[in-house]
Amino acid sequence: MNLHKSIIENKEEFYNLAIQYYTNIDKEHLGECLIVLKSISILIDHQFIATPCVEIKLELRDQDSQKSIGNYFLYIDERRNFVDEFLIFH
């Protein structure tokens, strides 16, 4: 698995994939949020998520105050197939 190299070379694609998945599940808040690209990580060992996989994190901010209002996490495998996702609002 040469996942590290793939992420470095294609990070915009990974972020765009996460944005696409997020917009599919949260149409209610979509117009109210700014999406901030936060991180891409390789998950090696996790109790609840099948590993190894890629974790892509987006931060959701209020458009007016710019304060963080939540996070979206997308988990995909090395072939960029969906594994899991989490949407958390504070």
Rank of each mutant, 00 (worst) to 15 (best):
M1P: 13
M1V: 07
H4I: 09
H4N: 10
K5I: 02
S6E: 15
S6W: 00
S6V: 03
S6I: 01
I8E: 14
E9K: 08
N10V: 01
K11D: 15
K11A: 00
E12N: 12
E12Q: 11
Y15L: 00
L17F: 09
L17P: 07
A18W: 06
Q20Y: 14
Y21M: 01
Y22S: 02
K27I: 11
K27S: 11
E28W: 07
G31V: 03
E32W: 08
C33H: 09
C33D: 15
I35W: 14
I35N: 10
V36E: 15
L37Y: 13
L37V: 10
K38S: 09
K38N: 09
S39A: 12
I40T: 11
S41F: 08
S41H: 13
I42D: 08
I42R: 02
I44K: 13
H46M: 06
F48E: 11
I49C: 14
I49V: 15
I49W: 08
A50L: 02
P52G: 15
C53F: 06
C53E: 12
E55P: 09
K57Q: 10
E59Y: 09
L60T: 12
R61D: 10
D62H: 10
D62Y: 04
Q63N: 09
Q63I: 10
D64I: 12
S65M: 00
S65C: 05
Q66V: 06
K67E: 13
K67L: 13
K67G: 04
K67W: 11
S68K: 05
I69Y: 12
I69P: 00
N71G: 11
Y72G: 01
Y72K: 11
F73V: 00
F73L: 14
F73W: 08
L74I: 05
E78I: 05
E78P: 07
R80M: 14
N81K: 15
F82C: 03
V83G: 05
V83S: 00
V83N: 14
V83Y: 07
D84N: 15
D84T: 01
D84K: 04
F86S: 10
I88A: 06
I88N: 01
I88Q: 10
